[in-house]
């Protein structure tokens, strides 16, 4: 099946495009997809950096199965501000 992956921000710049199409077998998981995309775009992130993926507008686990037509985005670390050491009340 053919899957489309959107890139944003840092990943878009590193990939040099905002969309990639990847053909993978049925039953493919997020982990399989990430491996295939990393193969094609090794500049995306160093091998030891985990790439966060959103499927249909939700953060997805590596073992999540993908379906044709899923909206898939690679999500670089989100913006701004200092990490806050406070804990919730």
């Amino acid at each position: 099946m053919e899957l489309s992956v959107r890139f944003f921000a840092l990943y878009r710049e590193r990939a040099g495009c905002n969309l990639a199409k990847v053909t993978l077998p049925e039953g493919t998981t997020v982990a399989d997809l990430v491996a295939a995309v990393r193969d094609r775009f090794p500049q995306l992130a160093p091998p030891d950096v985990k790439i966060v993926v959103a499927v249909n507008e939700e953060y997805a686990e590596l073992e999540t199965s993908l379906q044709a037509g899923d909206e898939i985005c690679f999500i670089p670390p989100v913006s701004g501000g200092q990490a806050n050491p406070d804990t919730s009340p």
Partner: peptide, 19 residues
Amino acid sequence: SVPIWKKEFYEGGEHWVAC
């Protein structure tokens, strides 16, 4: 958790900012 990214442009470069 919100997918919004910030890029800072400064003298001599640019940088995507993350938590």
